[in-house]
């Protein structure tokens, strides 16, 4: 505990860079997953290959991917950008199948009614399909957010600043409190972002408030 109190500024600094590496991939994965999922749903064979690719992508351990990417995209091994790109890939691997499920969960007849009422394709997507898919999309984003925040720490072994540095430094110097603080801070950060996502979901999807976040 004394270690934590004496190093609050260090923890705060690492938390900041942790968030900077975690938030963009979560956003990128969400935004890119929408068109990719629509595309995947449009053809049966595409859907199968997207599901297979996603599960294989997710099977790739994170550290080797962090090591390989710089050779492929020209960033440095210690660059936060490298971590962000890798985490976006993992985010997509989780989010695209989730978004495809979300869009499939929307009742076809409701979409048909919207078309009959004169909605143009774009308006129908934005005003009818996307809100109805919202709760399942939110469930997907929550999974992506929590796993991304936890994965950022792996970059610590390569020297990329994040809460993972507390593990690396703690084990090197034999400070148990530092490692424990890193675990607690990472989990708290994940819970905090998760809670914010739930609140955001309630704000933009007021109709989900009564019945909990699942059923549209």
């Amino acid at each position: 505990m004394t270690w934590v109190l004496a190093n609050l500024d260090v923890i705060a600094g690492y938390t900041g860079s942790h968030l900077l590496q975690a938030l963009p991939p979560i956003l990128v994965a969400f935004l890119l997953s929408l068109p990719l999922a629509k595309l995947a749903n449009s053809r049966g064979w595409l859907r199968t290959s997207v599901t297979t690719t996603s599960s294989l992508m997710y099977a790739i351990p994170s550290l080797p991917l962090f090591v390989l990417l710089p050779g492929l995209i020209g960033t440095g091994v210690r660059s936060p950008l490298n971590i962000a790109v890798a985490l976006s890939l993992y985010g997509l691997a989780l989010m695209v199948p989730a978004a495809a499920d979300a869009f499939r969960s929307v009742n076809r007849e409701v979409l048909g009614s919207a078309t009959a009422q004169g909605y143009a394709p774009r308006a129908r997507f934005l005003q009818v399909e996307l809100p109805l898919a919202g709760p399942v999309l939110l469930a997907g984003v929550r999974v992506v957010a929590v796993s991304t925040i936890s994965l950022v720490t792996v970059g610590g072994v390569l020297g990329v600043p994040s809460l993972g540095m507390l593990f690396v430094d703690g084990v090197r110097r034999g400070i148990l409190a530092e490692i424990a603080a890193g675990i607690v801070a990472t989990v708290l950060l994940a819970l905090l972002i998760d809670a914010l996502l739930v609140m955001l979901g309630r704000a933009v999807m007021p109709w989900t408030r009564r019945q909990g976040a699942r059923t549209p």
Binding site: V154, G156, F167, V168, G170, L176, I179, V187, L191
Partner: peptide, 19 residues
């Protein structure tokens, strides 16, 4: 199962290494 997803793997590995 949900909470475990938030647990940083590197954190556990280093924690047990010290313990």
């Amino acid at each position: 199962a949900g909470a475990a997803r938030a647990l940083p793997t590197l954190g556990l590995v280093t924690l047990f290494a010290l313990l």
